[in-house]
Nucleic acid binder design. Structure first.
Lengths: 250, 250
DNA sequence: ACATAAAAGAACAAATAAGAACAAAAACGA
DNA sequence: TCGTTTTTGTTCTTATTTGTTCTTTTATGT
């Protein structure tokens, strides 16, 4: 019976009943009160529980993770797959950029344990990676609550100053002829700031976005180093991307 | 019995039970604990398991969201009171700075509905106010997971560029003779950056911190415009602060 | 407000596990 | 087959966790 398992039990009980008692937990887990108290102290340090005399209660403040979970999209599994491909290109010691958006977000789970530095403007990424092995650098600037990211002049200027080894970005649309496009100028300016000084740009893009233009076109295809997409992407199209000079993973 | 087979067994057991123990696996596979520990170390490197003492657990079991709530401290009610006093000085249209720390955090709940701009380096403040009526500006920079805030050269430089109307800051210690002090240079440099261009500095400080010096002294009392504290503060001491030129709320 | 019982905390001791360094065994290629 | 490389085991040291004892703090009833 180690700490992780006790923690599981405590948090689970807390979730169900709203409170736990030291003596009850100690009895149930066949250990002593001091051990449980130490556990609760640790969990309280992380804000996961609030100590009371004789036990602990659930933090009444709304748990914010709920607000920041990725919306389950139709392309959920594809995005996970794409991120798995991309994650293989991340090595210990790297400094990488992770874009905001649902396509790049699953990367977080795959790199939590790596000793790398992650630069991001995404609030969910920040939240997911804060407290992990990863050193997070947040781009400062105005917070766009809808996109859950920082944007604006300060953010782009801030990002321009970081020369990341690898940038993992998403877009709203890509096409061979018109390059990268987005629904918002904000996204575009973030991309341009990052891409300018990134060693290599990985475009994470599920197949539904291929050959689909959005209204704001902001960069040629050549700004991208590697296109990472899923198995549904037509082989012929991928070959054309390779001809255009991109590396392609799928 | 090679590594691949042990790995299969370990991951399978992990999938079924959520956790494994070194001794149990070693016994079952007729090998020694050190071998299993080496296996687990390898698997942990790949993020497939999370080590515990005596075994390992599934990664998703160990992963816990960092709850961005303030830990309930002994001075909880005092801090709420202090923030209520401070909130009366915030008017629609203001641009204010909110410091990281448990003293200033309760301010968020009191200003959610106001049309103001909040500049902050605090992650809890960011998450509390994201999506509210408030326009949030986050200071960019390295994320300090322990303090749940951004810090560092970039953050201070970023903050220096905002001229906020009012800055609401906390400190670890204040005294008449030695001024403001902190436990960390990080906190200090944030204060100095903000205070330099703030219209008015409100120091939120519960009475337990009055006349208590911390090791790093970083600013004179005159850097503060208004001291906001609680009812427990000795009247005589507050009078002395007034003599020193500060406005005092309690 | 005071007394009392329960719980928390500090300090120390014991048990258990992890890690380092080196030796032995097995696998592999020439 | 021999030498080399990789894997596994042994021994010893170090670190972590847990439990015990005692003191201090906190909650609750009178």
């Amino acid at each position: 019976m180690n700490f992780q398992l006790r923690k599981q039990y405590i948090l689970q009980t807390l979730e169900q009943h709203g409170s736990v008692e030291v003596a009850a937990v100690a009895g149930h887990l066949r250990t002593t009160p001091i051990t449980i108290r130490r556990d609760l102290a640790l969990l309280a340090d992380q804000g996961l529980v609030v100590r009371t005399h004789g036990g602990a209660v659930r933090p009444n403040m709304a748990r914010h993770p709920i607000a920041f979970i990725t919306k389950a999209t139709a392309q959920g599994p594809q995005k996970e797959y794409i991120c798995q491909l991309a994650a293989r290109h991340i090595a210990e010691g790297d400094t990488i950029f992770i874009d905001c958006g649902s396509t790049t977000f699953p990367l977080c789970a795959l790199i939590r344990h790596l000793k790398i530095r992650v630069v991001t403007n995404s609030l969910p990424v920040l939240f997911e990676l804060a407290g992990s092995a990863v050193q997070v650098v947040m781009a400062g600037g105005e917070v766009d609550a809808k996109r859950r990211a920082t944007h604006g002049a300060v953010a782009t200027e801030h990002l321009r100053r970081y020369a990341v080894d690898k940038a993992f970005v998403g877009v709203d649309g890509v096409s061979l002829r018109r390059g990268l496009s987005a629904n918002s100028e904000k996204e575009a300016s973030i991309f341009l700031a990052v891409a300018a000084s990134a060693g290599h740009v990985y475009l994470l893009c599920d197949s539904s976005k291929l050959e689909r233009d959005q209204y704001f076109q902001f960069a040629p295809l050549s700004a991208v180093g590697t296109l990472v997409t899923d198995k549904q992407a037509p082989a012929e199209l991928l070959a054309q991307h390779r001809d255009a000079g991109l590396a392609v993973l799928s």
